[in-house]
Every structure is written in structure tokens, then in C-alpha cells.
Nucleic acid binder design. Structure first.
Length: 488
RNA sequence: GGCCCCGUCGUCUAGCCAGGUCCAGGACACCAGGUUUUCAUCCUGAUAACACGGGUUCAAAUCCCGUCGGGGUCACCA
């Protein structure tokens, strides 16, 4: 009987959900779903400075939005809780004591000052930065005496002096490190509270995590953790270290300070369709084959594998995000697009917070007309400003189209035909317009360009008579008449 | 600096583990055409990469060594 598949996402609530963290969550979630396993969320919130409830909420809501809701976690509970490290301190202390009893650690009385000096001199002599194990050689009676005397001390892991350790990383293969390259790390602080690497091991073990899938920045931590598993006599989970997401120029990893695209909020605020975003995110560092790119969530689950995650760092292909999301939006139902753009129109003050039936109908028309052009829903603001703002600057080229020789006269002559048309039937309107242009001996374009300028102040946009339909007869009339004045 | 990871078109990647079918495939972006009243969509086409140097081999993007380059990590932080 094989052990159940259990994966965890263990973010630190620092105020935002990092896009790289979102991808880590995605890969964990995908793997768990694919193998019928459990997806656990664990808050690594022992840093009291930065740990706020708002920060925790950002993570919870971000994961909800992405659709990676945990099976077990701080909000949903579970059999291996609590799921926030801040509530597990007693556990760490307890297991710390056990390690002291079994002799896996030794007390270190070195002061922070001595440690700092040691670092300094190693730095100067260009030596490897590593604890010199001074306290490991202390005489046992001396140790006893100092502990009894209440001398402040930490506990360090007794790292074997010989040998090497290898992990079989699912993505990188075997990674090996020599004993001499690992120092006797502090496991238990002078305060009695264990450090991060210790807590992670306790948690992963107690929560029965089978696969640890995390960023490559944890690769070197892994060896320290493996040693701790060994000290406890526990078996290790399977590891997989994901390639890092780099900054836009390929320099360093993404940070919110320098790169706004590091924060998931950016994508939420801009209104990227979440399914498109997830599809895109899956493609950063993973691929199914040499050509498949558009995949639904279900297909992702079915096809995902850690073995096909590549090992080199990547920048975020933002243009591809736009393309993928544009594709998703184009394939959406008009009704859904209407629902998605509504909040943006409300925010702009273009429609009421509770749109009337009439406004709803217009939103739907706008959605239908513009959906092929949208890559994220916030774009509706610039795309449809002409609809909701009666007055505004003309685009230079649009103005030119209006001022062309004969344009105004043609428009004036056409106006009665235009207004007599059925505004709910763009195709019929177009037919009549073509007939009119023919009769005048003018090309269709000669009529269409000034009319578009008059109606929308722009040279681009949806089909012209779709534009007229959105505006309606009255508003269209007003705009054309205004343009006639402008041109004369 | 030590240790670890990585290095295919501008970008994301396939191919590498099991050398030949790869004078390297796809996608996005860009450019050029076509369709369209405009834009977008759609269609067609073009440009564009195995970091470098050795070695092994009949044969190397694929295996080995080295160099260079990039990244990560070295706290009583997580």
C-alpha cells in the first residue's frame, strides 16, 4: 500500500501573493488533483513583523480567485492542524526537546558578537562562511556546568563530518552535497524556539507531506532539512524544485518593489480572465508537448507532470498572456463578457452601480461589439470611452477624415437615409448605406470614414453600424449634426 | 568568495535521459501580403537559436571535460 499523495503550498504572508507563489501553488494543486491527492495550505507566519491578518486574507482570496482552494488549511481545518506555523510553536519546542534528548544537537554558547567576528574574519580571509564548531568540542562537564549556570545557548545540529548526501529531485535529478559543505546550523534559538528549517521538517513530517514542490531558492535548504529528517530517523518526502521566475530583463528574481507584475493583484485589477491566466501560468516552466498551448483546467490536470517541468529560470512572457487571454475572451459567451466588463464601467461612472435594464442592454451590445479586441477586461475603458462619453477629443486622423474634400456634404446628404434606418439591424443599415454611396457615385469608404469619425471620434472600432446601434438613433443624430457644424 | 542550479530563435518552449529521421519543431512578438468600411479576428509568407572550446563517436543540440555567462544560497529571517 503506497502512502497517500499529499502536497502543500507554504507561503509567507508578506502582504501580497507573488506570481511565482501562485505558480508554485498551481503546480502543487495540479499534481494533487491529478493523483487524487490532498492539497494543503500552510501559513509560514512566524515572522510577527510582517504577519497581518490582511496579508493572510490576500493569500486566501488570491487562491480562491485562482480556484486552488486547499483541501486542508487555516480556513478549512483538517486532521493535521493547526495549519499556521504561528499556532504550532509548542509542537516545535516539543520536538526540539526530543532532539536534545537523543543527542542530535549540541549546545552552543557562542555569543552573537563572536559569531559576527567569525563571519567578518572569514570574509576578510576569503574563507568559506561557516561556523567553526567551537562548542562541539566542549568538555561534557563544562557543558553541564554552563547549562546549570543558566548560560544562554542555542542548539546546533551535529552534522556528520564525513560523507555526502544526495536527493533525487524530480526535476533536476540527483543533487549531491558533501559533508564539509554543510555547517552545524542552529536549530533551536536561545529563546527555545526552533528556526524555520526545523519547523518546516516538523510540519512536513507531521502533515504527512509526500511531495515537496517549491521554488529553486529552497534547493540548498533541502540538504539542511534532509539532515534533520535523518537526525529524527524519518524518511524524506520526494522533492521537486521549480525554476525561478526572473525579472523582465532576466536579472534576478521578481520582486514586487521593482516589478509590478510580481503581484497577483495586478492581474486581478486589470481583469485578466482567470482561466486564461491559469493556462498561461502553467506554461511558465512546464509544457505538455511541442505544440499544445491552449488547455482547460481539466486538461491541465490530466496532462500535468513534474517530470516535464524544465529546470531553467524564465521571464514572464507578458505578451503571451495577452494573446492567451484574448483568445479566452473571444471564445466566451457575450453574456459573460458583459458581466466581466460591468464593474469597470461602473467604476468609471459610466453606468449605475445597479445598472438599469436599458444600461444592461447597452453593456451587452458593447460586450458583443468589443469582445474580439479585449485581452483583459480593463481594456474596455479605453475601448469604449467613445460610447459613454458624449464629448471628447477627436483622434487626429478621425478629424482629418471629417475635413476631407466633400466629406461633410456627403454626410449631410446621407443623414436622412441614416436616420430612417432600423438601428437594431446593422446589416440592413449597411446595405442602405452602400446603395446610397453608389447612387452618389462615391466609394463606400468616402461615406464610412467620416461617419465613423462623427460617431466615435476614432478611426478604429467595431463595425460602424454596430457602433450606431450602441449609440441609438437619438445620440447618433446628435453626434452627426455636431460633426456637420464642426466641418462647416 | 564557497557550495548548488541553469545556459536552444527577441521571449516562452519542443528535442537532450535511451546520439543519426534536426542544415533544429511550435507559439507569442515583429515584418510583408490577403480578407474586412476601420481596428481586431482569420489566412499565407518571411526573419530568427543549439553560449564558447576541446574530447568520445562513422555520426553530437543530444555523452564527457573545461571555459565563459546567468541565477540561487550561505542569519539565533522565512
Amino acid at each position: 500500500m503506497s502512502d497517500p499523495i499529499r502536497l502543500r503550498f507554504a507561503p509567507s504572508p508578506t502582504g501580497y501573493l507573488h506570481i511565482g507563489g501562485a505558480r508554485t501553488a498551481l503546480f502543487n494543486w495540479l499534481y494533487a488533483r491529478k493523483h487524487g491527492g490532498v492539497f494543503v495550505l500552510r501559513m509560514e507566519d512566524t515572522d510577527e513583523e510582517r504577519n497581518t491578518d490582511a496579508a493572510r486574507q490576500t493569500i486566501f482570496r488570491g487562491l480562491d480567485w485562482l480556484g486552488f482552494s486547499p483541501d486542508e488549511g487555516p480556513e478549512q481545518g483538517g486532521p493535521y492542524g493547526p495549519y499556521s506555523q504561528s499556532e504550532r510553536q509548542d509542537l516545535y519546542v516539543e520536538w526540539g526537546r526530543k532532539l536534545i534528548e537523543t543527542g542530535g544537537v549540541y549546545p552552543c554558547f557562542c555569543s552573537r558578537e563572536r559569531l559576527a567576528e567569525l563571519r567578518e574574519s572569514q570574509l576578510q580571509n576569503r574563507e568559506t562562511l561557516r561556523y567553526d564548531r567551537a562548542c562541539r568540542a566542549l568538555d561534557p562537564t563544562e557543558v553541564r556546568r554552563r547549562i546549570d549556570a543558566g548560560d544562554e545557548h542555542t542548539w546546533r545540529l551535529k552534522v556528520p563530518e564525513e560523507g555526502s548526501w544526495a536527493i533525487q529531485d524530480l526535476i533536476r535529478g540527483e543533487v549531491r552535497v558533501e559533508a564539509k559543505d554543510i555547517e552545524d546550523i542552529i536549530l533551536i534559538r536561545a529563546s527555545g524556539i526552533p528556526v524555520y528549517n526545523f519547523a518546516v521538517v516538523i510540519d512536513d513530517h507531521l502533515m504527512k507531506i509526500s511531495h515537496v514542490v517549491r521554488g529553486e531558492d529552497h534547493l540548498t535548504n533541502t540538504f539542511k532539512q534532509v539532515l534533520i529528517y535523518e537526525a529524527f530517523g524519518w524518511s524524506t518526502p520526494t522533492f521537486a524544485h521549480l525554476p525561478l521566475i526572473l525579472g523582465p530583463t532576466g536579472e534576478g528574481k521578481l520582486s514586487k518593489r521593482k516589478h509590478p507584475e510580481a503581484a497577483l493583484e495586478l492581474y486581478q485589477d486589470k481583469g485578466y480572465p482567470v482561466e486564461g491566466l491559469v493556462n498561461w501560468l502553467a506554461l511558465v516552466g512546464w509544457s505538455f508537448d511541442d505544440k499544445t498551448e491552449i488547455m482547460s483546467r481539466e486538461e491541465l490536470i490530466e496532462r500535468f507532470s513534474l517530470e516535464r517541468v524544465n529546470s531553467s529560470g524564465a521571464r514572464l512572457p507578458m505578451e503571451k498572456l495577452d494573446w492567451i487571454c484574448g483568445d479566452y475572451i473571444r471564445r466566451m459567451e457575450v453574456e459573460q463578457v458583459a458581466r466581466e466588463i460591468e464593474p469597470f464601467l461602473v467604476k468609471k461612472g459610466w453606468v449605475a452601480a445597479e445598472p438599469s435594464d436599458e444600461e444592461r442592454a447597452r453593456i451587452r451590445l458593447v460586450a458583443a461589439a468589443e469582445k474580439d479586441r479585449l485581452r483583459f477586461f480593463q481594456q474596455i475603458e479605453e475601448l469604449s470611452a467613445w460610447v459613454f462619453e458624449a464629448e471628447g477629443e477627436f483622434e487626429a486622423k478621425a478629424l482629418k477624415n471629417l475635413q476631407k474634400e466633400g466629406a461633410i456634404d456627403l454626410l449631410r446628404d446621407y443623414l436622412p437615409t441614416f436616420l430612417a434606418g432600423d438601428f437594431d439591424d446593422p446589416a440592413a443599415m449597411e446595405e442602405k448605406a452602400r446603395a446610397f454611396a453608389d447612387a452618389q457615385g462615391a466609394g463606400f469608404g468616402k461615406l464610412v470614414h467620416p461617419l465613423r469619425a462623427a460617431l466615435t471620434r476614432k478611426t478604429t472600432g467595431p463595425g460602424l453600424f454596430d457602433c450606431a446601434r450602441i449609440l441609438g438613433r437619438e445620440e447618433s443624430k446628435r453626434r452627426v449634426e455636431k460633426a456637420l457644424q464642426l466641418g462647416s
